[in-house]
Amino acid sequence: MKTILSKDQLHLTINRLSHQLIENHFPFINTVVIGLQPRGVLLASKIVEQIKAEHPSLSLPYGMLDITFYRDDVHKELHTANQTTINFSIENKNVILIDDVLYTGRTIRAAMDALLDFGRAEKVELCVLIDRRFNRQLPIQPDYTGKAIDSILSQKVTVDWNSPQVVLF
């Protein structure tokens, strides 16, 4: 087991990602944040919290998207669906997709398909905490990266929010 981000580093990284979003999107007039179920929403809610802490008057629409029904491996493995809550239109909006770990890229592919069913976004960006480089199976790259790591197929990256840290098994 190897620690990729300790508690303090994780805090700093989330802080940096939030500031990068503020830098590019402030005052968030045409921007919405969507966290991916189940684990991306935990990161997304922390980032939204951080942005709002710095700019309390901001109203930043925040939704949760579940991609279970858009997966390309329905017949290999059945996943339990989670809640989707997007109580706003994404038509012509800048959408920031947030997930914890970017690995093969298949989840993000499914998320983009799912997003299309909610409307035509102006622009979609991807923000991830951990980018597992050299493991991509689809041409998808993040716009905001917490930390890029090199890992092999048999390893597993876990973001532990209970005792905040990111570890590699």
Binding site: F69, Y70, V74, T80, T84, T85, D117
Partner: peptide
């Protein structure tokens, strides 16, 4: 329980502008 919980998620799908998912394409 599993069927009812999954149905709750599909009910949300049916409220979307495009009420369709690609799950059973094949």
């Amino acid at each position: 329980q599993l069927i009812l919980d999954t149905a709750a998620q599909f009910k949300e799908v049916l409220q979307r502008p495009i009420k369709k998912v690609p799950s059973l394409r094949d």
